[in-house]
Design a binder for these strands. Structure first.
Lengths: 341, 341
DNA sequence: GTCACCAATGTAAGCGCTTACATCATCATT
DNA sequence: AATGATGATGTAAGCGCTTACATTGGTGAC
């Protein structure tokens, strides 16, 4: 019960218990290898000293951490939340700890975070999307840290991925929109240069146009950042131009919800005057009025399987192949035929 | 360009560059102390080897990490997202890295995460709320890791806090509700046993009742978990009882939005038939129809100031005093006088 | 009684890094 | 030319832990 500031070490515990440091270490790591009476003495000492092992030292000596790192573009909205929560729950169950960092959708920050988590001894990494410089992949290979990409699927990419086909999923939704009779389509997307999910989703819409013999270049596309306010602003812009779209397809639900809010503020009726669609099917989609037509992504399943896959990669040190999950188109109230001309 | 799996160390770099390990270390930590020509040689070696410092070793030798840990109850919804994002941005600006862990609103998991982050060398910790066992506070003191509590304010608590008065804020909102004429009030709250914010908010409603000479025990309170679906379910329960409330006050916006969704599904008009209020003023609140009456919490400001305060604690190793931020009541469409009897 | 064997514990060598201190060259000052 | 600053670099001692290997003493087989 000394009140001085002093952090007890393994050595202190050993002395207090009258054993060697090796024995204390064994008590902590493989208790069955030390006889009960000794073990009791040691744990008594540990408690009375308030000892807690130093992680850094431990890692250095044992060279593994049971830690998985995840770097997501943002924590600010719910896109990644559900999947990540499932990811973490599964990891916990298997005895791993999750460390999360966010990159604010910026490649250089992501790179910095990757290095930081690797340096901290992450045994494996979960990343979002395939858009990153190849030297950082090289770095991961050199360091021998397995990495898994989620939220997208690309069997040809350098890193294995577990996710869905953003392009195909969006094409399916766009096909519905076109079949309803819409011909002037607006798109609100995130930056397609640095965000492969956004890029692929836009490509999916273009694919659908081609199939329907429409000129994909006629799409009115606005690129912005993910966020409700951005969606609102982009909607206002699209809708106030001449020849404005009768359907606005958004790169995700957050943008779509922003668009719907703006529509309401401008007294534009959804879906009578204009249809709006999203992507992700986060909880939000069912909360707004009318409910949002969107693409359902199996976030929890993806998160759980990502955890299993990544642990597998870490443990077996072998490569795994990419997994494609399927999505569903969710038709809800925000999509209807275009108004009569 | 060797392809074998081998992680280069400081020593390898030193040899490759023909200098001592000390010089390499200096290049990394205080480059101005190394002459340019040497520095170039070293960085060349670093790049050609793909060297990346080992964090554990570094921490052990230098005994600080420039890392701040945060443990939040959940990542699953947006309650903590905005504040945490601001927290992280401020930390980054000051050269600190943020590590986030989540506790799923469970005390024992929180404790485990605290130990884990401390063991990983977090220089300081951000925690949410004051409800935790005292031995874990003792642990933090022994380990000499400063911790700051956010999302609530309590000048008398053991740990310093930066936040707002949950009780007073909710009382202010409840007073509005009562002034509008509501007499039968329902409450949807998170678990008040383990969540001090939830407890204080309910207390605030009771305070308002007392002031209005109403019996606080007449409140119809349902405790549930935070989540849209939970809110919906609780709403259905409250509304279908006899003598059902004319106003339902929710512990946060997420619950409130769930309640509104359920109202819509049950064809109950908000606010004509029943009023609904939230707490937090997350983006969601302005997206639903009608917009949600709630308490505005200055999340970003709180996050930013928490970062500054915590860094200050870490650097100066001195205690700081708690800071109280003020909240605003946001009156929006979801609150109206009760229907005529 | 001797020996081999085994379980319990101790000894000590690192793990990769930082940093106090020592060394050495350089250069302005006297 | 001798002196002392000054700045650049090297030397080596840990940081707290794990673990291969060494030691010890007790067991049962012969």
């Amino acid at each position: 019960m000394s009140s001085q500031r002093f952090t007890p070490t393994l050595n202190d515990v050993a002395q207090q218990a009258g054993v060697s440091t090796a024995t204390v270490s064994r008590c902590l790591n493989s208790p069955e290898r030390v006889i009960e009476s000794t073990r009791n003495k040691v744990f008594e000492a540990i408690n009375s000293l308030g000892y807690s092992p130093n992680f850094g030292a431990r890692v250095m000596a044992a060279r593994r951490t049971n830690t998985i790192g995840a770097i997501i573009p943002t924590m600010e909205n719910a896109i990644f939340a559900r999947g990540l929560q499932a990811f973490q729950e599964e990891l916990r169950m298997q005895g791993y700890t999750l460390l999360v960092a966010s990159s604010s959708y910026q490649q250089d920050i992501e790179e910095e975070q990757i290095r930081s988590l690797v340096a901290r001894g992450a045994d494996g990494l979960l990343l979002i999307g395939h858009d990153r410089k190849s030297d950082i992949c090289q770095f991961l290979e050199t360091q021998d840290v397995p990495a898994l990409v989620a939220w997208t699927h690309d069997a040809t990419a350098r890193l294995p991925s577990i996710g869905f086909d953003n392009r195909k999923s969006m094409q399916a939704l766009a096909t519905h929109v076109l079949e309803m009779g819409h011909r002037r389509i607006g798109v609100i997307s995130a930056d397609t240069n640095t965000n492969d999910r956004a890029r692929l989703r836009v490509e999916g819409i273009r694919d659908a146009c081609r199939v329907a013999h429409l000129n994909p270049d006629a799409l009115q596309i606005i690129q912005t950042t993910y966020g409700i306010e951005s969606g609102a602003k982009a909607f206002a812009e699209l809708i106030s131009g001449p020849n404005h779209p009768t359907a606005i397809m958004c790169g995700n639900d957050v943008l779509a919800v922003g668009a719907m809010k703006q529509a309401r503020d401008m007294a534009i009726d959804v879906p009578k005057d204009v249809s709006i669609t999203g992507f992700d099917d986060i909880e939000l989609a069912r909360v707004v009025t009318p409910a949002l037509t969107t693409v359902h992504v199996p976030h929890r399943d993806m998160g759980r399987r990502a955890a299993q896959t990544l642990i597998n990669m870490v443990v077996s040190k072998t490569a795994v192949s990419s997994v494609e999950l399927s999505t569903d188109t969710c038709l809800r109230g925000s999509l209807a035929p275009p108004p009569a001309p």
